[in-house]
Nucleic acid binder design. Structure first.
Length: 435
RNA sequence: GGAGAGGUGGCCGAGAGGCUAAAGGCGCUGGUUUGCUAAACCAGUGUAGGGGAAACUCUACCGGGGGUUCGAAUCCCCCCCUCUCCGCCA
């Protein structure tokens, strides 16, 4: 949520910034409503002050005093006027509150200008793209051949684009999750949380998924409970409406969650296999920090996510999203894209964003400065550390051998009961300790 | 699911129609005292919004929403949450 005061003070800057993001939505109406709401607030406050003065007089002058009946009548008259004033105020306020939620965050000055994905800037690349003496296969062919991916059965029980990992595939998922959690908790200083996967409307609104993304979310039979599209939602909302002592900042959290997304309308070759699925697993990093540190913290958050890719020996590049490609709530965002040799494509596996105070204002997450004084809004950041399906796609495609095996990077071995590679397996085959 | 008890400031906790932004305590900030540390004493210390150059002032807020009343943290109704006990269940 944008700061209304700032919007009022520098509407031209905000208008320009929102245009860069490709959405000025209802900015003009918001500005107009802000003025009328403030006027209406002033009027009703004055009426209430008047009323309070009268009732106080009544209390102190004795309820049976000579003027009491007259006073009582004046208060009743005032109440009539107050009621209309309050109703006007309420309806204007409601519209304002509703519209403000549709205004996206404004981009940071360091964000490259651009209208869409073509305007994104590659900041750096890491690792060598593997070369093969044969034509590397995409993961959907390999995975099915190896018996670790089973889209046909997944479709039968859920529908298209739901993942089903079997045998060593399931072991790989579980191992990756633990590997990532261990790295972030023991080496990067994040505290792990195991969180609810269904959250209420307030939580979804707090991180900015609502109202804009409602049609992309799964709703439970209880219309107020949504399946989370990312662990960012429960993790960040852990702190909603709290005032955190400055000494406790930065708060660093990590959590594993499944993520659920309708991804309506997304079909085609770009969405084959594990490229885009309705349910996936993700280890999420979230930070709450002091405002002046948030951009440094963004860089270190990206580094923490990159570390996972480096240990997995997966070539990747870091992309700074341009103004037109930034998500609704982000002020700045880096995507990490991993190279998938079988598809000859870069696949997004992480989005690391600084939301500045946009989410914190919605959630009421503040900190109390050590030096005393008013509570201030924190800045919130998050990033995937990392999303699993495309990592698995890249591991399979980049690690494939001419024999139809998949070699795994060393840091993963202990998480896979010592296995160093994955190979074809039968329906009832368990995993052995030898690769 | 049933019964009971609760939800008040950063935290704990009193208050049971007007004298309450709300006692008291803790914490925090400043001061006095003090070989150091600690302690003691004194003072200050809620959030949000409006008006004002400022001093200051007005309004709202005691889980959420309605209602009664000239007036509600306090009375009534609905909902949410927490705790205890019982039931049910992976």
């Amino acid at each position: 949520m944008l700061d209304l005061r700032r919007l009022r003070q520098e509407p031209e800057r905000i208008r320009a910034a929102l245009q860069a993001k490709g959405s000025i939505a209802s900015l003009e109406r918001v500005l107009e409503l802000d003025a009328t709401v403030r006027k209406a607030t002033f009027d009703t406050d004055n009426l209430r002050a008047e009323k309070n003065a009268l009732t106080e007089k009544l209390a102190h002058g004795g309820l049976a005093g000579e003027g009491a009946a007259g006073l009582r009548q004046s208060v009743k008259d005032l109440n009539g006027r107050l009621k209309t004033a309050e109703e006007t105020l309420r309806s204007e306020k409601e519209e304002l509150d509703r519209l403000v939620l549709w205004l996206p965050n404004i981009p940071h000055e360091s964000v490259p200008l651009g209208g869409g994905p073509e305007g994104n800037v590659v900041v750096r690349t890491w690792g060598e793209q593997p070369s093969f003496a044969f034509t590397p296969a995409p993961h959907w062919d390999l995975g099915a051949a190896m018996g670790i991916l089973d889209p046909r059965r997944a479709a039968r029980i859920s529908g298209s684009n739901f993942p089903l990992f079997s045998g060593d595939g399931a072991l790989l998922v579980r191992g990756l999750i633990t590997f990532m959690l261990d790295l972030h908790t023991t080496e990067h200083g994040y505290r792990e949380h195991w969180v609810p996967y269904l959250v209420n409307r307030d939580a979804m609104t707090g991180t900015g998924q609502l109202p804009k993304m409602e049609e992309d979310m799964y709703v439970s039979a209880d219309p107020e409970l949504f399946l989370i599209p990312t662990g960012e939602v429960p993790l960040t909302n852990l702190w909603r409406e709290e005032i955190i002592p400055e000494e406790r900042l930065p708060v660093r959290m990590v959590g594993y969650t499944p993520c659920f997304r309708k991804e309506a309308g997304a079909y085609g070759k770009e969405t084959r296999g594990l490229n885009r699925v309705h349910q996936f697993d993700k280890v999420e990093l979230v930070k709450l920090v002091e405002p002046h540190q948030s951009y440094d913290e963004l860089e270190s958050l990206v580094a923490d996510a990159e570390e996972v890719l480096q240990r997995l020996e997966l070539p990747y590049r870091v992309v700074s999203l341009c103004t037109g490609d930034l998500s609704f709530s982000a002020a700045k965002c880096y995507d990490l894209e991993v190279w998938a040799a079988g598809q000859q494509r870069w696949l997004e596996v992480s989005s690391c964003s600084n939301f500045e105070d946009f989410q914190a204002r919605r959630m009421g997450i503040r900190y109390r400065p050590r030096a005393g004084g008013k509570p201030q809004l924190v800045h919130t950041l998050n990033g995937s550390g990392l999303a699993l399906p495309r990592i698995i796609a890249a591991l399979i495609e980049n690690g494939q051998t001419a024999e139809g095996m998949v070699q795994l990077p060393e840091p993963l071995w202990p998480y896979l009961r010592g296995r160093r590679s994955l190979g074809p397996q039968g329906e009832n085959q368990g995993s052995t300790t030898e690769g």
